[in-house]
Design a protein around this nucleic acid. Structure first.
Length: 160
DNA sequence: GCCAACGTTGGC
DNA sequence: GCCAACGTTGGC
């Protein structure tokens, strides 16, 4: 089981939206480095939900991968801003995952807190100018983030 | 609103 | 293949 971090602008799609929908396909990623991380995700992996371009930016909760290696449906939709003319159902270029809501945190773990706790080598999201919307999080960093989210949490929140 | 970071585009 | 111009992201 591995840990990841996905960014979204809460004005566009935030953790409350996922709580309402319960599951969602994480579509629209059109960056190869990010896609390669999406391809590496497996069912059961835990994913930090990061709110970007908001005040304060930070991690708002947790989700879980429930289905991996899905072809992003928007690549075939000519009316979508994410349409990719070079992609066909036989040879899709963009894969993604279906994620499920796990928990919304009572308080956001802010970017400021994350910067105080981690170096850019620990956690890519604290690197100045970082724009990658999908990143991997090491097990040890993930445990520390979970403690920041809830100092009284005895064990990391693992669903099932 | 500003601007740094950085991915993409396109001329050559 | 190089690289300048441009567009986007996202913190501040």
């Amino acid at each position: 089981m591995n840990y990841w971090l996905l960014k979204s602008e809460p004005e566009v799609y935030g953790i409350r939206d996922l709580k309402r929908d319960f599951t969602t396909i994480w579509d629209g990623v059109r960056n190869y480095q990010a896609r390669n991380f999406l391809r590496a995700m497996q069912p059961g992996d835990l994913v930090f939900f990061y709110h970007s371009n908001t005040s304060p930016p930070g991690i708002a909760g947790l989700m879980k991968v429930v289905e991996a290696n899905l072809a992003d449906p928007t690549q075939f939709d000519s009316s979508s801003p994410y349409y990719d003319q070079k992609s066909t159902p036989d040879a899709p270029r963009w894969q993604t995952v279906c994620v499920e809501f796990v928990e919304e945190w009572a308080e956001i773990v802010s970017l400021e807190q994350l910067k105080q706790t981690f170096t850019p080598d620990d956690l890519m999201v604290v690197r100045p100018g970082n724009r990658l919307s999908v990143t991997a999080v090491s097990h040890s960093t993930a445990q520390k983030i979970l403690k920041l989210a809830n100092p009284h949490r005895a064990m990391p929140a693992i669903a099932d």
